[in-house]
Amino acid sequence: MEKLQTTATVLIVPGLRDHVAEHWQTLLASRLAKVRSVPPLQVDGLCCNARVEAIQRELEQIDGPVLLVAHSAGVLMVAHWAARYRRPIKGALLAAPPDLDADWPAHYPSPSSLAEKGWSPLPPMPLPFPSIVAASSNDPLASYAAAGVLAGRWGSELVNLGAVGHLNPASGFGPWPLAEALIRRMDSAHL
């Protein structure tokens, strides 16, 4: 199968579960010609600062334009990274951002436990690069309205994915073809 060619290197920023073989991000990475992924943390995986530093280390290894592709808590990591570092980013696809003010299902870390690890409050400013927030109408970690508030705060385009849960294997998602279309659109934008 021919790899998807992009002018920018795509940096995959996974959520708290890091890399899952059946996840759309992992499958997407195998389809891209120019791709890197933020590696799993070997220490406290819930530490926001450690995850932000891992993004920065990967970005330091990339020459040229970059597209960020983040899922779930990875979206929040991107927001924290953007508040701390400056580097030209061509665009960001931010899928299924969690709401740190919501009550999450029992098998997820609690928003209060994440707050203790530096996840909240989220930086209040717009992102300094174009971005798309892709959100579900029935995500157990964030209502569509909450995702819309984040998109507004960040200056992002909001895309309604419909009822896709948390857009992960537990919600029945492996491949997510729309991700490739959104990446192609951002990659071809002349900004």
Rank of each mutant, 00 (worst) to 15 (best):
S112Y: 10
H107E: 15
A102E: 14
Y108A: 13
H107S: 13
P97R: 13
D99V: 06
D103R: 13
P105Q: 12
S110I: 00
Y108T: 05
S110T: 15
P109H: 05
P98R: 11
S112P: 00
I89W: 00
P98K: 05
A92Q: 10
G91I: 03
A79K: 11
Y108L: 14
W81M: 04
Y108K: 09
D101M: 12
P109A: 06
V75L: 00
Y108E: 12
Y108F: 15
M77V: 02
H107D: 15
G74Q: 07
P111W: 06
A82G: 01
R84S: 11
D103C: 11
L93G: 07
A79E: 09
L94V: 04
H107G: 04
L76Q: 10
A92Y: 02
R86A: 12
P88M: 12
A96L: 04
S113C: 14
V78K: 07
D99A: 12
R84M: 05
P111I: 08
L93W: 11
L100G: 05
P97I: 06
K90C: 01
A92D: 10
L93Y: 09
R84L: 13
W104K: 10
H107R: 12
D101R: 15
W81C: 03
W81Q: 06
D103I: 10
Y85K: 11
Y108I: 00
G91T: 08
S113I: 13
L93S: 03
A96I: 06
G74T: 01
R84N: 01
P105C: 04
V75P: 01
L93C: 09
A92T: 06
P97D: 08
R86E: 13
R86H: 14
A95K: 00
S110F: 01
A96M: 06
A102F: 11
D101H: 14
A83G: 07
L94T: 04
P98H: 10
P111A: 12
L100W: 07
L94G: 05
W81T: 09
S112D: 15
A95S: 13
L94H: 09
L100Y: 05
Y85L: 04
P105Y: 02
P109C: 11
A95H: 00
S110N: 07
S113F: 09
Y108S: 11
A106L: 08
V78N: 09
A83W: 04
Y85E: 06
D99S: 09
R84V: 00
G91L: 02
L76T: 03
V78G: 02
A106R: 14
K90M: 09
S110C: 05
V75H: 02
S113N: 11
A79T: 07
W104S: 08
G91Y: 02
K90A: 14
R87H: 09
G91R: 12
R87A: 00
A95M: 15
R84A: 13
Y85Q: 07
V78L: 04
L93M: 09
S112F: 05
S110A: 14
L100I: 10
R87D: 07
S110M: 04
A95T: 15
D99Y: 14
